[in-house]
């Protein structure tokens, strides 16, 4: 399998602290790759670098053969690499449907010039978009909430909304930041099924940060373990589980690890 995403010796520091310190790994096309590690290992910082929210101090990030570490977030998203946020950033004061309708690339109605010069194309695009949004709402089971403000959804429902919104963009690579955090056990199963089905049916690649190791072992075929800004182990679930460096990293910070991650 070819690498869809290549992380090459990425470094990012804040005021002298190297949050990410030369991390390097690859995400194969069509795979589900999990990124794990104790809190403060640099996972979220690395995510932010990949998604373009932060600019790495050194190293390269290559997505589908193209360097993206100097691109702004919105350009990366348009290229097909889309992220979710740890605390599902549903736009609380917009309706669920509007949340989904936002996720569209190249919508002529989203430009003033498009509205003026191509009103018909804008309307057609909007119609198609609404249809697709309804389909995805059906898929994730939120159709009854279409006109509710997203702020009224439960934590788990927001994660589903977040996932559906990402899917609207028809991405090739999805970064999920702790998709299982704050999700009820019933919805967890549902979410996992969605992710597996999406990979199977649409060939979407996933890179997932997750603390729920059961989920990681079930879903991922590759696990990358980070500690103190570096990748300390990577491979299939079985080999990583037996890796001494991984055991040390987790035991050494076990007390911290039990705490929920700060936002």
């Amino acid at each position: 399998m070819t690498a869809l995403l290549e992380i090459q010796q990425v470094v990012k520091s804040f005021g002298g602290v190297r949050a990410v310190d030369g991390a390097a790994f690859e995400v194969a096309a069509g795979s589900i790759t999990a990124l794990i590690g104790p809190n403060g290992a640099g996972k979220s910082t690395l995510f932010n670098c990949v998604a373009g929210s932060l600019r790495p101090d050194a190293g390269r990030i290559v997505f589908a053969g193209r360097r993206i570490d100097r691109l702004p977030t919105h350009r990366i998203a348009r290229a097909g690499l889309v992220r979710t946020f740890q605390s599902a950033r549903a736009l609380a004061r917009m309706t669920v449907l509007d949340n989904l309708l936002l996720a569209s690339i190249g919508h002529p109605g989203e430009r003033l010039s498009g509205l003026l010069l191509r009103p018909r194309a804008a309307r057609a695009h909007e119609r198609a978009l609404r249809e697709r949004a309804r389909e995805l709402l059906d898929l994730v089971g939120l159709q009854a909430h279409a006109d509710a403000y997203a702020g009224t959804l439960s934590g788990g429902q927001r994660k589903l909304l977040d996932l559906a919104r990402v899917l609207m963009l028809e991405p090739t690579l999805v970064l999920l930041d702790e998709p299982m955090a704050g999700v009820s056990p019933r919805l967890r199963v549902e979410l996992l099924d969605h992710i597996l089905a999406l990979r199977r049916e649409r060939g979407i690649t996933f890179l997932i940060i997750e603390h729920d190791l059961d989920f990681v072992m079930q879903a991922a075929e590759k696990i990358v373990v980070m500690n103190e800004g570096r990748v300390i182990a990577q491979g299939d679930p079985a080999s990583v589980q037996g890796d001494q460096a991984v055991v040390d990293a987790y035991l050494g910070t076990a007390a911290v690890h039990e705490q929920p991650a700060p936002a």
Partner: peptide, 9 residues
């Protein structure tokens, strides 16, 4: 940030 992650400038 969320808007940017959906491709909005």
């Amino acid at each position: 940030d969320a808007a940017a992650s959906l491709g909005k400038n």
